[in-house]
Amino acid sequence: MSDERAVLSICMTCRDGREAETGTRGGSRLAEAIFARIDALNAAGVTLRGVKCMSQCKRPCIVSLSQNDRFTYVFGDLTPDETAHTDALLELVERYNNAPEGFLERKDRPELLQANILGRFPPIHSASQLVSRLDPVAAE
């Protein structure tokens, strides 16, 4: 995968409670719904990938958005069969690509992705004012 594009990772093993009804896991259905919009993903400059488990079983369905030298975001509680969630993810990618270091405050994210964020992680070499170096206190 190229470091030049953002990567949208989808947990493929997430369960949403509709597996018996649909015959597939929620994560797989979310990936299918997003993949159905592949032209929009390509236009937004994002690469799609599946992950076997993202260890957030209490908050399925899970996605993350990341890129080298940019913030990483993790979102949960996405509903695979709701077009509004897919639309919000595509809008998120566009906003992410246009933000310095990919940093998005809560108000800058699509409304559907404001409350269900599970984490926002700065890049290792971030210039953001959110990040400060913690040096050990010198022993006296």
Rank of each mutant, 00 (worst) to 15 (best):
M1H: 06
M1V: 07
M1P: 07
D3R: 12
E4K: 07
R5A: 05
R5W: 04
S9L: 03
C11V: 01
C11P: 02
T13S: 15
C14Y: 01
C14D: 07
E21F: 12
R25D: 09
G27F: 03
G27I: 01
G27P: 04
S28F: 08
E32W: 05
R37T: 06
R37I: 00
D39Q: 12
A43K: 08
A44N: 03
G45N: 03
V46M: 00
V46Y: 00
T47M: 11
L48T: 07
R49P: 04
M54W: 00
M54I: 05
Q56H: 12
K58G: 08
K58A: 14
K58Q: 10
R59C: 11
P60Y: 06
I62K: 02
I62L: 12
S66C: 08
S66F: 05
Q67S: 05
Q67W: 02
R70K: 13
R70S: 08
R70V: 03
T72A: 08
V74A: 11
F75A: 05
F75W: 14
G76L: 01
G76P: 01
D77Q: 13
L78Y: 04
P80D: 09
P80S: 10
D81S: 10
E82M: 08
A84N: 13
H85A: 10
T86N: 04
T86R: 05
L89G: 00
L90P: 01
V93T: 07
V93D: 03
E94F: 09
Y96V: 04
Y96M: 03
N98F: 10
P100L: 14
P100I: 11
F103M: 06
R106C: 13
K107A: 15
P110H: 00
L112M: 14
L113D: 03
A115C: 13
N116M: 05
R120S: 11
P123I: 04
I124D: 15
Q129C: 09
Q129H: 13
D135E: 15
P136S: 11
V137N: 09
V137G: 06
